[in-house]
Structure formats: structure tokens, C-alpha cells
């Protein structure tokens, strides 16, 4: 970067200041509040800030339910983020080929996002009904009538991996948006760049591999973070598909139950602080790595 005039620096700071103040109060102020509550024994309606140290945290570490939550979150995040990125990029590349009907496809892929999780959850619950025999329904019935019986499975009632089936519904809902992000990025890459590469004798694959993918990698970062924050907070979708049940439990559901069904605010706050800690451990190094790489380019 060239040297920056003082005036520009002042303007830049003035431009971002309102956002910084707002985020400072609404995010960091409230996180501090949660942190304080998580160190208290507040249980019941009346605030009770009696200090109990890390008691709530230790209880969670020993809690088998919390272990299930962590496992489910990891599986869900990997399947959901990975699936949405791959599917979104795949669809964006196809749509970038100037095929007829582009806007039709684009809107079809985006449409699921427009519908509330609560209703899509119900439809997916029907689709993923695991019953067999005379009560076969949903996808299993579809597979059966198409002669694809080997595809019939227990979906979200599969032990341990059931949460991945929920991720499938989330992919359905969010991959269209990933597609739109990628398409926006692809549309931002000038044709001249591709033409120049073609003139140099590069194959289409080489063009993608060496020119386009590196150029859209910041968009992959955005998409990963956006999808990641959804997967860490997923709540409505799971509840709509499967109710609140332990095999498909995630920290957000646990926190909701502890806080608003059980009024154990201390423990609920501890869950959210732990979630934030996990996020910072995963996300911050990644962001720094990317920022550093950008600076080096």
C-alpha cells in the first residue's frame, strides 16, 4: 500500500466508527454480560449474580449431553459447509456458461432460502420418514417406486450420523445462496483474462484451476464463515424436523432448553460462551492466515 494521506485515514476511521461502536455495544457488551452470567449461579427468574467461578463450565465438560452436542455440531458443520460450498460452486460454474434458462435455474436454486426454516423442516421430516413396509413414505417411498431400494435408509434416525441428514435439508436451503455468491464472483472476473489464457493454450480446467479459483478464494472465505455461523447456531431447522431430542441435540438447542425451559441462565450463558470460544479457536487463525496471505500477494 502506498502512503496514505492523513485526511483519508481520518475519513476511513469516521466511516467505520458507527459500526464499531454499534458492534461494540451489541456484540461485545452483551458477550461480557453473558460471560458474567456464566460465572454466576443464576437459576430462576430473578437475576442472581452470585459468583461460582467456573462451576457451570466444569459441569458442562462432564455432561454427556454436551458431548453429544459437540459431536453433532462437528458432523453438521462439516457436511453442511462442505456440501453447500461444493454444490454452490458447481451450480455457479454451470450457470456461468451462458446456458439458456439461466435466470430460471438461479431462482429455483434460491427459492428454498425464501421459506422459513419451520416449514421446510416439516417437509423434510416427511421426506425423511424412516418407516418401511406398508407405511413407507417420503424419499424412501420414492426410491422404492423407482426400483432404487438400496437407497432406502433411516435418514436422521440413523444412530450417530443422523445429524448429517439434517445437514442435507440445510444444504437444500442454503446452497442456492452460496451459488449466488460464487456467481457474483465469477461474473466479476473479466473475460479478457480467460481469453488471454485461452490464447496461451490453456485448457478450460487449467483456466479454472490456475486463474479463476485463486481469484474467487476470498468469496470461499466469506461463504465458509456465513455457512459456519449458520451451522453453529442451527436451531429452528432441527426442532422442526425432529423436535428436541438428544440424538440430534446441538448446543443452541441445549442452551435454549436450559435458559428458557429451565430458567438456568448461568448454565445457558456458559454454553454460549463455550460456543464463542470454539468459534474463535477455529475462525480467528483462519482469518489471520487469509489476511496475511492477501497482504503478501
Amino acid at each position: 500500500m502506498p502512503k496514505i494521506k492523513n485526511r483519508d485515514t481520518l475519513i476511513s476511521i469516521a466511516l467505520v466508527m458507527p459500526s464499531i461502536v454499534a458492534v461494540g455495544i451489541f456484540v461485545y457488551g452483551f458477550i461480557l454480560w453473558s460471560l458474567r452470567v456464566s460465572l454466576s449461579q443464576w437459576k430462576g427468574l430473578l437475576p442472581d449474580y452470585t459468583w461460582v467461578g467456573l462451576k457451570n463450565y466444569f459441569e458442562l465438560f462432564a455432561d454427556p449431553r454436551f458431548h453429544i452436542d459437540i459431536r453433532n455440531t462437528v458432523i453438521f458443520t462439516v457436511v453442511f459447509v462442505g456440501g453447500s460450498l461444493v454444490l454452490g460452486l458447481f451450480m455457479a460454474i454451470l450457470l456461468d456458461q451462458n446456458l439458456p434458462g439461466e435466470s430460471f435455474f438461479r431462482n429455483i436454486f434460491l427459492f428454498p432460502m425464501a421459506i422459513s426454516f419451520i416449514v421446510t423442516g416439516v417437509v423434510w421430516r416427511w421426506l425423511m420418514n424412516p418407516a418401511t413396509g406398508s407405511r413407507i413414505s417420503g424419499f424412501n417411498q420414492l426410491f422404492h417406486s423407482l426400483g432404487l431400494d438400496f437407497l432406502i435408509n433411516r435418514w436422521h434416525t440413523t444412530p450417530t450420523w443422523g445429524i448429517a441428514a439434517i445437514a442435507l435439508a440445510a444444504i437444500w436451503q442454503m446452497s442456492g445462496y452460496t451459488m449466488a455468491m460464487y456467481l457474483g464472483g465469477l461474473r466479476g472476473i473479466s473475460d479478457d483474462l480467460r481469453e488471454a489464457a485461452r490464447v496461451d493454450g490453456a485448457s478450460e480446467w487449467q483456466i479454472y484451476r490456475h486463474i479463476i479459483f485463486p481469484l474467487i478464494s476470498p468469496i470461499t472465505l466469506s461463504a465458509m464463515i456465513i455457512l459456519g455461523h449458520i451451522s453453529l447456531k442451527v436451531f429452528d431447522l432441527i426442532v422442526a424436523i425432529a423436535g428436541k431430542q438428544l440424538p440430534l441435540d446441538v448446543p443452541a438447542i441445549y442452551m435454549w432448553q436450559v435458559t428458557f425451559d429451565g430458567y438456568f441462565f448461568g448454565k445457558g450463558a456458559a454454553i454460549s460462551i463455550l460456543l464463542l470460544l470454539v468459534v474463535s479457536v477455529l475462525v480467528i487463525p483462519y482469518i489471520y492466515y487469509n489476511l496475511k496471505n492477501e497482504a503478501d500477494v
Binding site: 449431553r65 438428544l246 440424538p247 441435540d249 432448553q257 436450559v258 425451559d261 429451565g262 430458567y263 438456568f264
Partner: peptide, 12 residues
């Protein structure tokens, strides 16, 4: 409510 929430977790 707190008791019920705890029972619910144990039941799950």
C-alpha cells in the same frame, strides 16, 4: 422447570 429440564436430558 429446571427439574423437568434435567429429567428431560436424562430421559433423552
Amino acid at each position: 422447570d429446571s427439574w423437568k429440564t434435567d429429567i428431560n436430558t436424562a430421559l433423552g
